[in-house]
């Protein structure tokens, strides 16, 4: 995979080797023009304000495939092979790609939020006092009940991550809502919803036991828009510990592209 990526990069036009500059860098209208383009072409995946959705949050300014202007140009123009990010260079033309880059620079402000905590201390909390690793896998280690967090860093803002820890019910990741089923004999099972269709339901309980039922064999199915994650971390952690944990989460999956 990496070999193929490098081959593609090597095949890029020679112009890219010369680190092109944004010709609209000094144009005060470029961000607004870029915003118009963004709302039409980029919004479906990155959200109307670039806050992320199906695609990554672009307001952090911490892009996983390079952070220089020419990196952003390359990504918008050519896409990222092997991902859902298509290239838009042919459709938009050079000028509009650069205007989008100008716009992205104006929304990438939240990465300036200073990280007060210590990531190493945060990892200890993650695997120790917080019990986070009981339910979340990071780098191959951890429980299965919650979403894997190995690459969570670039995907969300610090504010979002803070909120996700303190108020886990506010925005539940797809596939991690809670469901309680009651069998005909009265047995009740609660777990995260691993599947739900018109005729069946699948769930995994807090001991990682997997269940699948046909709806006709159940007396009730209760879907709840709440997370199985405890909502007590605001009390468990001191503010300093919370900062440490956030520093650790933000560090996960963040990597710089070598020029």
């Amino acid at each position: 995979m990496y070999l193929r990526l490098w081959l593609i990069l090597a095949a890029l036009p020679a112009a890219f080797a010369q680190a092109p500059k944004n010709p609209f860098a000094q144009d005060p209208n470029a961000p607004e023009n870029g915003r118009t383009v963004f709302r039409i072409y980029c919004e479906p995946c990155h959200g109307i304000h670039g806050q992320g959705g199906r695609g990554p949050d672009l307001t952090r300014g911490n892009y996983s495939n390079g952070t220089r202007d020419e990196d952003l140009y390359r990504i918008v123009a050519n896409g990222i092979p092997g991902t859902a990010m298509n290239g838009f260079g042919g459709e938009l033309g050079d000028d509009n790609v650069w205007r989008v880059v100008s716009y992205l620079r104006t929304i990438a402000t939240r990465n300036t939020e200073p990280m007060k905590g210590n990531a190493a201390a945060g990892e200890k909390l993650f695997r120790g006092k917080g019990g986070c690793a009981n339910c979340h896998i990071v780098d191959g280690r951890g429980g299965r009940l919650g979403p894997e967090l190995s690459k969570i860093g670039p995907q969300h803002t610090v504010a979002y991550l803070r909120e996700a820890i303190l108020e886990p019910n506010k925005d539940i990741s797809s596939g991690y809502s809670t469901v309680t089923i009651v069998k005909r004999d009265g047995t009740k099972i609660t777990g995260i919803e691993r599947g739900l269709d018109n005729f069946s339901v699948q769930l995994m309980d807090s001991s990682d036991n997997y269940y699948s039922f046909l709806k006709r064999d159940l007396s009730s199915i209760q879907e709840e828009s709440r997370s199985l994650m405890p909502n007590s971390y605001g009390r468990l952690f001191t503010p300093a510990e919370l900062d440490d944990l956030l520093a650790y989460l933000v560090s996960l999956g963040a990597r710089e592209t070598k020029p």
Binding site: T36, R39, I40, I48, E91
Partner: peptide, 22 residues
């Protein structure tokens, strides 16, 4: 849905929805 609009210049063969929904 949340419906958005924007002012968009028409260019032949280019997407011309003048914004989107969420």
């Amino acid at each position: 849905d949340i419906y958005y609009k924007t002012h968009q210049q028409y260019r032949e063969g280019q997407w011309y929805q003048a914004s989107t929904s969420d």
